[in-house]
Amino acid sequence: MAADLQPKASSSTSTYAGLGIPLILPAWAIIGFFLVLPVMMMLIYSFLTKEFRGGVIWEFSLAAYDQFFFDRGLFGDELPKIEWTYITIFWRSIWQAAAATLLCLVIGFPTAWFIATRTARNRSIWLFLVTIPYWVNLLIRTISMKFLIRDNGPMNELLMASGLISEPIHIINTNLAVQLGLFYSYLPFMVLPIYAAVERYNFALSEAAADLYASRTITLTQIILPTIKPGIIAGCILVFVPSLGAFLAPDLLGGAKNFMIGSLIEEQFKGAAGNWPFGAAASMILLSLVLLVLTLYARQQTREQG
């Protein structure tokens, strides 16, 4: 019977045995040549001297990282102080990404739960409904959000016309606007893993808890949440990481005061600043931050499995 297959499954002669390397080679070549190599090049650039109006001079320099962390006065001759401008931008980005993640969690969790507890047939329809907006161009979604929440946009007009408010609610160019934009950008990344976890959750466990006199809250906090925790964590990572380096939402909805990493980097290459080594250094710091989060996640993941 089936048990006969057991030892074989791991080491049966595979159909295309021996072809692994030639088959994987195109993927290696393309990603290696057009992503890994460029990232290494970026690392090198972050240690070069800037050329005005973009580009670099091939001369080793720590100026980019120095500029990021230290303030040496207008002429560079003062004693170095901590430069807070860029650290503040990074800190704001982290904070904004975290807030957006929380927003996604608060709204996405009940949604995922609701969908996962429908009948199998309705589930796919609900899932479809929630994911459709994600497939609409991100730029268009962000513009739509901007259009809706403008001071004299449809939302405020409707609320004023209905007499609920007398002054427009000012959302655009605030932190909340950026968070709403990020929410709109990445919500499915929160809903889908949680949905998958809830769908696998065995509701007999809830019944067993209720049978053993657990209240609804106790069942939720002590039985359900620990069981579906991996899905929640995966969702949070999937929203947090892209939010951190997002460009469109802060750029279109945040305004000048709510500058985030993405805009800072963009300005070094496309904007007026034109400082490539500094942009490369900021990108390296962002990449390190993201890899740190992913490594922590991977380690926590293996610890839980092991």
Partner: peptide, 18 residues
Amino acid sequence: PSGCGKTTLLRTIAGFED
């Protein structure tokens, strides 16, 4: 019985196992 190697033997004749 299950896991005795009979299927493996058959598959070596067919050529699915080295």
